[in-house]
């Protein structure tokens, strides 16, 4: 190809990427950043200012919700890792070759069912007239129905359920690449199970662990349906505040400020996580 043709084809290949990132990601995000620094002083009259952020700081319910969302998301991420790691290890290292594929596929099936249906399933199980409560009554363990819904535990169960697959999949693919001889060598050198886990398996799986944690944390903090449907009126999730500002109160400036805060907060946590674990976005999330 001549140089001009090469240049032209590079531009043609670059155009879809540039349009996508510029028009749907970069400019819209700059847009909400600009909108969040705009204050309404009179109808259709605006001026630059940090009033929307000041409102966030002075109104404890807002920053409490953000802190609550953040800490519960961290808890969910931690639980997903603790519950998911043994499953991933089993699939990658202990199950036989044929069982492995089947188990992995079984892990993936709930992935393709919408959040809404998963939350709906949990509602049918957990509510007062739900399957678990009725079964307990039938077994004579309780006289009246028990409401398992609309509390933090239900939200956490639902969230762990929704995100755990995104933890297991990257873990399986990293653990899959680890030779069994590494583990054998650890034992031969006199390590016990705990040492082998701590010194060999976990360090090897680190990119997968970090990738899983990032995706799970972002998904949890940004989730909307599960906390609302399972937590009920007082779930106080931060995305709900954004929705209320935008749709119910039609306060786009305030909603945009909340959006920027959520984004800064979650990327801050992810950045700290990457720093602490010595990983980068390219070799974790991109690989899974």
């Amino acid at each position: 190809m001549s140089r001009d043709a090469r240049r032209l084809s590079l531009i043609l290949l670059f155009a879809p990427f540039a349009l996508w990132i510029l028009l749907l990601i970069a400019l819209p995000h700059l847009g909400i950043l600009a909108l969040s620094m705009r204050e309404k002083v009179a109808p259709r009259v605006y001026e630059f200012g940090f009033g929307n952020y000041a409102e966030f700081i002075t109104e404890p319910i807002y920053w409490n919700t953000l802190l609550r969302t953040g800490s519960m998301s961290l808890l969910v991420t931690f639980l997903a890792l603790i519950i998911g790691f043994p499953i991933a290890y089993y699939i990658a290292k202990i199950a036989g070759k044929r069982a492995r594929g089947a188990l992995f596929l079984m892990c993936l099936i709930p992935l393709w069912v919408s959040d809404l249906i998963r939350a709906f399933g949990w509602i049918l199980l957990l509510r007062e007239s739900g399957v678990i409560s009725r079964s307990l009554q039938w077994m004579g363990l309780t006289q009246s129905g028990i409401e398992f819904l609309y509390n933090d535990a239900a939200v956490i169960v639902g969230l762990v359920y929704t995100v755990i697959l995104f933890m297991i999949v990257p873990l399986v693919s990293t653990l899959d690449g680890m030779g069994d001889d590494m583990i054998e060598a650890g034992y031969n050198l006199g390590g016990n199970s705990l040492t082998v886990l701590r010194r060999i398996i976990v360090p090897y799986a680190m990119p997968g662990i970090v990738a899983g944690c990032i995706v799970v944390f972002m998904m949890t903090a940004g989730s909307y349906l599960t906390p609302i449907l399972l937590g009920g009126k007082n779930s106080s999730w931060f995305t709900e505040q954004i929705y209320n500002q935008f749709i119910s109160r039609f306060n786009w400036e305030g909603g945009a400020a909340f959006g920027v805060l959520l984004l800064l907060f979650t990327s801050g946590v992810v950045w700290i996580g990457l720093r602490l674990s010595g990983q980068s976005l390219a070799n974790t999330v991109a690989r899974s």
Binding site: L24, I214, V215, G222, G255, G259, T266, A282, V285, A286
Partner: peptide
């Protein structure tokens, strides 16, 4: 730019929604 390409996947969906709506 390769990293930039991955970023949309980790932005919360609610934020993508409001930013595109506003834009």
């Amino acid at each position: 730019l390769y990293i930039v390409m991955i970023v949309p996947l980790v932005i919360p969906g609610v934020i993508l929604g409001i930013s595109i709506l506003v834009f």
